[in-house]
Nucleic acid binder design. Structure first.
Length: 165
DNA sequence: TTAGTGATATCC
DNA sequence: GATATCACTAAA
């Protein structure tokens, strides 16, 4: 299995999101097949956390590709994202589910991912990285969920990618 | 369908 | 300093 390098993540987040489906998320020795992702593409995307600009929380989104963005949602759940694209561009891919753990909150709970992974990098971390074992699959697109605050236009974008069973 | 949870942003 | 919001889950 090969580890995905900076060249993989240093591309538009839509491409990265689509290709991350079917890859392996490796955390503390466990491998899980990524089955669902969503793309959040910059300040122009009203669903992106950083669309209103830079804050201490969204600062990580402006870091270089491969940086991990973990944040707490609803006071309970840690959600795992990986920064993509150009540095200074707030683009990221949300890892929404793996085959073994449906749901972004359950995923991080199952893997023991917490805020301590925030700002680490899948390019050089020993505990958290993405692997490619040559697995290929069909990917289907869908509308993003849980972003009722975004513009109607952005809600209708097919920026959610799922592994076709 | 509803409650629960706590960091963040936004308002005094 | 206070409160409204939120990319979710579990229990019913």
């Amino acid at each position: 299995m090969t580890r995905l390098d900076e060249a993989f993540f240093h591309r538009p987040c839509l491409e990265v999101a689509r290709e991350l489906v079917g890859k392996l998320l490796v955390v503390n020795g466990s491998c899980l097949r990524i089955s669902e992702t969503e793309a959040y593409c910059g300040e122009g995307d009203t669903a992106c956390h950083a669309h209103k600009g830079r804050t201490p929380r969204t600062e990580v989104l402006y870091a270089k590709a491969g940086t991990v963005y973990v944040y707490l949602c609803y006071g309970i759940h840690w959600l795992l994202n990986i920064v993509t694209g150009e540095q200074e561009q707030p683009e990221a891919v949300l890892i929404r589910a793996c085959l073994e753990a449906p749901g972004p909150g359950r995923l991080t709970k199952a893997l023991g991912i917490t805020g301590k992974y925030n700002r680490s990098s899948v390019l050089d971390s020993q505990d958290l990285w993405i692997g490619d074992d040559g697995f290929r699959c069909e990917v289907e697109t869908d509308k993003r969920v849980g972003i009722g605050y975004a513009s109607q236009e952005d809600q209708n974008r097919l920026w959610r990618f799922k592994l076709k069973p």
